[in-house]
Design a binder for these strands. Structure first.
Lengths: 225, 225
DNA sequence: CTTCAACTACTAAAACTTTCATTCTTTGGG
DNA sequence: CCCAAAGAATGAAAGTTTTAGTAGTTGAAG
């Protein structure tokens, strides 16, 4: 679950990133208007945390462009000014939430989680697929009420598959979403095979069918119905 | 056990918080309608103490929204006016209890405890798990009728585990519930290991199985079936 | 001054991730 | 239809991160 933090003050950005990383989000930072726009164009995020006052431009401009691009990212505005104008402007432009600095990190984290639930899982904190139940609140996977313990990468992988079910995902996109946009792309992605293997093994061992279909030369498809 | 005190008069709020803190509740305060709603949205409390007359809005509105949100928090209304109307309105809106100012703090504390018993432990003042019996009134833990003395943090930790049994809880959320939402989060949570260890040791030494399962990279799960 | 819970620092152990070498499978051209 | 080449799967070892354990310091209460 990739989150983009657009904030020019390094201290604040760093502490946000660190906290969200602990909460199992994959954080990337942009420190000014241009690099933010670049990242937004190039990559896909589930949520963008947006400071209003930035070098080279305003966070509100970014927000407007996001809406013009029809991007699906959720947006949380953060701003030092507690002015009603900003808040109204932000929410009018389609922000999902607004937070006044200084704020508490658990607060921000809770809002990011809320946006993810809303955007991806119809506000629920679990997803049911056939006999599988993935609870993103409890962070547990069950099949017929039997727990299937997953490691962090396995969990993230399954979550990514599920949010793209019946759709071919490339190894490149898996890497982008689980390891981050900036991961060195020159190398081979052999390590993915390991995680795919481990996840498959656990699912099959628990008695589920092999939902993870390989599409030769393209990637994988988590196919269900 | 986190309790939210929504009361605009600082003196009253402070003395409530101080008294409840001595009674082993973890108190947080909100002084107006907006900050109360914000905290309610973001954090989880076991009980909310709600003044009716607030800046920016009424406590009754908060109560209604709580019910709309399907939040499980217990609510105690406190109000200066001893009008039957308020009382009826409060209880009709789903408050658990009603107290007229000025009131005695031990009485408030007792009602908070009653709500916790009702909400979390089916009205009983003890919880039985396998052979363990945790008495939240006496604040004692027994296994096969043998006392296991716990320190305050150990007790709070066990209570938090039990009220989240079979669910992965992160170290972050443990910190939030045992040390409060505002605790500085930058540093490592090594100190939790100590408390986990101490609690485990006492439980195992008394002959119980190790209910506290570690979920690598995510947190802990108090698993019982 | 003593005691005990709470916290910190450091080392050991365990679990997870990545790499690597090897084998198996798919595909498309002859 | 067969074969070579590329892609995918497997098993095991190496590397990294996280958690457990030990010991000791701090600080508040009596």
């Amino acid at each position: 679950m990739k989150v983009l933090v657009v904030e020019d003050e390094r201290d604040i950005s760093d502490s946000i990133c660190q906290y969200l990383a602990n909460e199992e989000f994959l954080c990337e930072a942009a420190y000014d208007y241009h690099s933010a726009m670049e990242k937004i164009h190039l990559y896909e995020y589930v949520c963008i945390i947006l400071d209003i006052t930035l070098p080279n431009g305003s966070g509100l401009d970014i927000l407007k462009q996001l809406k013009d691009m029809q991007k699906a990212e959720g947006v949380i505005i953060i701003s030092a000014r507690n002015s009603l104008d900003d808040k109204i402007a932000g929410l009018k432009s389609g922000a999902d939430d607004y937070l006044v600095k200084p704020f508490h990190l658990p607060e921000l984290s809770a809002r990011v989680a809320a946006i993810i639930r809303r955007r991806l899982f119809e506000g629920k904190n679990y997803i049911t697929l056939d006999k599988l139940v993935l609870d993103i609140f409890k962070k547990t996977l069950k099949l017929d009420d039997i727990d299937i313990p997953l490691t962090r990468k396995e969990y993230e992988l399954l979550l990514y598959f599920i949010s793209n079910k019946n759709k071919v995902v490339t190894k490149e996109s898996i890497v982008e979403h689980l390891w981050g946009s900036e991961m060195d792309l020159a190398d081979s992605y052999n390590f993915i095979y390991s995680h795919i293997k481990n996840l498959r093994k656990k699912l099959i061992q628990a008695g589920s069918p092999d939902y993870i279909k390989v599409v030769y030369g393209m990637g994988y498809k988590f196919s269900i119905h």
